[in-house]
């Protein structure tokens, strides 16, 4: 509460909410370059499955019922993450976000998860930074295997 009150320069964030496995994630809508239908026949370079990249255990590719590709661009580099289509687009003050507890932060940041947002409707939504995720060591080594 204190944090929300502190500055008038607090940003508003538009968040795309989507689910993977039993968890809900949200990504900054501004980060996305494109959102497109997933076409299994097309050979898409630099594209990977989101739940695999973020390290969610016990989730199958078949469990992704409405796969879409979340495309981000970093300079000339383009990455695609395949997961369920967005469920919601919500707007929040950056102040309403909570940093991750110090015990889990070191493990989560490397997976691109940088904050949490308690929402009455959904419980805890994990905020994912696709740029961080693209740079994560696990993803770099597994990139060759991705479709």
């Amino acid at each position: 509460m204190n944090r929300a009150e502190t500055g008038g320069s607090i940003e508003r964030l538009r968040l795309l909410v989507f689910s993977a496995g039993s968890l809900r994630f949200a990504a900054d809508a501004d980060q996305l370059a494109q959102l497109r239908e997933y076409d299994p026949s097309a050979n898409q370079c630099g594209t990977c499955w989101f739940h695999e990249a973020v390290g969610l255990d016990g989730v199958d590719r078949e469990a992704v019922v409405r796969p879409e590709v979340y495309v981000v661009r970093q300079g000339a580099q383009e990455y695609g993450f395949i997961t369920n289509a967005p469920e919601d687009l919500i707007e929040r003050d950056a102040g309403s976000l909570r940093p991750l507890p110090s015990l889990v932060e070191p493990f989560s940041l490397v997976r691109g998860i940088w904050a949490a947002l308690p929402v009455e409707r959904y419980g805890i939504i994990l905020l994912v930074d696709f740029f961080r995720l693209a740079a994560s060591p696990g993803l770099r080594s597994g990139q060759g295997d991705t479709p």
């Binding site: 509460m1 039993s22 968890l23 973020v54 390290g55 969610l56 255990d57 909570r98 991750l100 507890p101 110090s102 015990l103 889990v104 493990f107 989560s108 490397v110 997976r111 998860i113 949490a116 308690p118 419980g123 805890i124 994990l126």
Partner: peptide, 27 residues
Amino acid sequence: EGISPIPGTPECIPGLITVRGDIESVI
């Protein structure tokens, strides 16, 4: 009242809880 898992953490940390609007980890 509901522990929300978070990927990448060790097994002895099952996830996160909310405590009056704040997020706390659980061991």
